[in-house]
Design a binder for these strands. Structure first.
Lengths: 250, 250
DNA sequence: GCAAAAGTGTTGTCCTTACACCCATGC
DNA sequence: GCATGGGTGTAAGGACAACACTTTTGC
């Protein structure tokens, strides 16, 4: 059985067992450094990509690393910290972002105990030319990644599984595509993320029945075959019916 | 654009831009107190329950609070911390436990910034007579909870939604039931958690087709009506086929 | 014998799957 | 004209939803 620290027992004495000086109590707590790591997925050339840098730690020299930073500001929400990292690294605002999991194994950081909250972000590569090339920032193929710095491979694996599941429950894939896209591109995206091949007619039927695609009236250009129609995603309609959303099964 | 703290810039100078003294680097990080809160669900009298105590903070006097504690030990994994809290509060080992979400809004704790990792646990009330009654530890009806201490109501709501979703993807409900249970009890559980009423025949058909129930050959006793068969859950078979598991739809 | 819950099948509807050919464009 | 991917419909099978009566036990 755990024994309460003396400092807490003392607090209790003040108020019939109740704690009144809550600031002092919190000050007595042990503290841990917190980082937020962003797993930023993109889609290009029919491949799922993730945004990485070279680790700037000597012990992980040459290894790839997720984009992370310390949740420094005392008044910064975790979600805000994740958004800040995205802004600093990609210049993008208003991107899709979701908390996935917190990693806290004692030995996961060689410098001592560090807690890391992993966030997943889905962004459209075309919207953002990488302007900052420090630390070899680049889009890396997800499937060909082996070793990474820290436990970042584990974090990436968890986030990738999360994405596979999430994309079947909600049509998040649109966040990875350009504003206007063909049905072939959409299908390539699903096939790449889920690692399966899908029937073209059934795929089209499914998305047609969802009524979430708006025909732009435009066609693909500069393709060496019959051009396909370009669609937009009906974000408005999706947001309205979000609650009722059940899933996308393939 | 964020400017790197001077201390980190200095680290870089040592090694051609790379950081070598990683311990010193981590020591330079700002730190935050971490707690783990357990949302411990149980099922009794056809109601979903959650294990709560009275808050021991003066400012939340009379309010209910989740079971939580600080992740104190430097060498303690988050999962271990959650298990420890469960042991200390309920005496149970080997219970179902899963990390759900981390809460980090700056104003969520009146004593200053505290990060809380929420865990969900599903336990069988019958297996555990509450022996510790300090702080009015008791099973509280989930549906009738209004106000709670801190942001614990929000945490509970998130965990409840998580449970509703999770129980439709995996047959976790068995963790809430006694070893031997009737089909009626199982259906009551699903109806209580999902807040719907289900067709008896279709429900039985579904579970029959899953082949996860073992007929114990025993019957209910002391019921004032025709007794039902008692079943056990086939944990072994479930674990074996876990990967293939898709879901339970109602 | 009556109250209370156990137990049991069938049918229609809908969704999912499997599958093959013609069309429009660039070269 | 040929290579490339765009675009389309149908039929069979499986899952889900709706629905009512008989059985067993305690009292």
């Amino acid at each position: 059985m755990k024994v309460e620290p003396e400092v807490i027992i003392n607090f209790r004495k003040q108020n019939g067992g109740l704690i009144s000086n809550v600031k002092k109590l919190v000050e007595s707590y042990p503290r841990v450094p917190i980082t937020v790591d962003c797993v930023i997925f993109g889609f290009d050339e029919n491949e799922l990509k993730v945004l990485l840098i070279r680790s700037d730690m000597v012990m992980y020299k040459g290894k790839w690393s997720l984009l992370g930073d310390f949740a420094i500001d005392n008044d910064e929400d975790l979600d805000e910290a994740a958004h800040r990292i995205l802004r600093e690294r990609t210049g993008m605002h208003n991107v899709y972002l979701e908390q996935v999991k917190t990693f806290g194994k004692p030995g996961r950081h060689p410098g001592g105990r560090v807690l890391t909250v992993a966030y997943c972000s889905l962004i459209n590569i075309q919207h953002h030319e990488l302007k900052i090339h420090a630390h070899e920032l680049h889009w890396h193929n997800v499937s060909s990644l082996k070793e990474m710095a820290f436990d970042h491979k584990e974090i990436l694996d968890v986030c990738y599984k999360w994405l596979q599941k999430r994309i079947q429950e909600h049509p998040l894939g649109f966040n990875l595509l350009p504003d206007k896209f063909s049905l072939r591109e959409l299908q390539n995206l699903y096939e790449a993320i889920l690692g399966v091949s899908l029937d073209k007619r059934n795929f089209r039927k499914k998305f047609a029945s969802m009524n979430l695609l708006i025909d732009t009236g435009e066609m693909e250009r500069d393709v060496s075959h019959r051009p396909g129609k370009l669609y937009k995603f009906n974000f408005e309609k999706y947001e309205k019916n979000k609650k009722k959303w059940i899933g996308i099964d393939f």
